[in-house]
């Protein structure tokens, strides 16, 4: 549905995007993750035909974004990382205005606006002025706006930024519903865990380069190859280190805060095996934990690696 080939954008001497390529099949939710300034918004703006790439090509449902921006705009709903609302209009008028901009016939516009407000849970706010809506409501109204012409592809730039946890959950529910309607969705964010629950695919971008891309589970496995255990032992530290180092699955062991931290490769069974080996070796284990936040740490590692 979305195909990006060797996309490059150069501003002056700075490469904002460097040969980025990925594909998103129909019906997937693609999470586009990277720190601020990594090139997420640039990529989305090129996909929305609002920016010409310096090199490379991009297609939305087969339409080239440089050659046929009109066809791209027909198939695409774009929600930028700001609200873009008109204060003097009501929520219903706001949607009606954009539906008219997409040349929807007048008779259908009322129904479109009502249906979309229902979808994003703002049906009771139809006649309320846009500037009196809360941040989360504005965000949902903007999502509704990007849907007025029933596009097959949605590009959402940081849809969850600045939302409280409850609003985030609501936004996630709406996106799941949209996925069930068969829409292909691209979401950008700088927070990886936020996307792993929602997305089916993920791409990690940093300094204009795509570091990893694929199915969520594959990327997570790739990133967290080398999970970490925190092991607390009673005395016998040296023996424990020697024993751990002798195991094939353990890559490295170091001491921090009086406990041992062991990096290993494998799954839950491997972790259980390590504990069994320690106990079988006569080591008194008082604590055995898998470290949380491994995903985030791995993400930080991946997005800073390329600098030096």
């Amino acid at each position: 549905m979305i195909a990006v080939e060797g996309l490059t954008k150069i501003y002056g001497h700075r490469r904002a995007l460097d040969a980025v390529s990925f594909e998103v099949p129909k019906g997937e939710i693609f999470g586009f993750v990277g720190p601020n300034g990594a090139g997420k918004t640039t990529t989305l703006r090129i996909l929305a035909a609002l920016l010409d790439p310096t090199a490379g090509r991009a297609f939305i449902d087969g339409a080239d974004v440089v050659q046929h921006p009109d066809r791209v705009h027909d198939r695409l709903g774009y929600m930028p990382d700001f609200f873009g609302v008109y204060d003097q209009l009501t929520a219903g008028e706001y949607l009606d205005f954009y539906a008219a901009c997409y040349r929807q016939p007048k008779l259908r516009r009322r129904k479109i606006a009502d249906d979309l407000l229902e979808l994003v849970g703002l049906a009771d706010r139809r006649d309320q002025s846009v500037d009196t809506l809360s941040r989360g409501m504005k965000q949902r109204l903007c999502l509704a706006r990007s849907l007025v012409h029933d596009p097959a592809v949605l590009l959402l730039d940081e849809p969850a930024s600045g939302l409280d946890p409850r609003a985030r959950v609501e936004m996630r529910e709406i996106l799941k519903e949209l996925q069930q309607m068969g829409k292909t969705i691209v979401i950008s964010s700088h927070i990886l865990p936020e996307l792993t629950e929602l997305c089916t695919m993920i791409g990690i971008i940093d300094h204009g380069q795509l570091r990893a891309t694929g199915r969520v589970q594959d990327v997570i496995r790739q990133l967290t190859a080398g999970r970490r255990l925190r092991i607390t032992v009673l005395g016998q530290r040296e023996e424990a280190i020697a024993l751990l180092k002798g195991l094939a699955s353990v890559r490295e062991v170091d001491v921090s805060n009086g406990s041992l931290e062991a990096a290993f490769e494998g799954d839950e069974a491997t972790a259980a095996g390590i504990l069994q080996a320690l106990i079988a070796g006569g080591i008194k284990v008082s604590g055995f934990t898998q470290l949380e936040g491994g995903l985030e740490a791995a993400f930080l590692k991946v997005t800073t690696e390329g600098i030096g």
Partner: peptide, 13 residues
């Protein structure tokens, strides 16, 4: 200023 220009440019207008 309202950053609504892009939103208009992605429509059919």
């Amino acid at each position: 200023e309202r950053q609504t220009m892009d939103l208009l440019f992605v429509t059919r207008l």
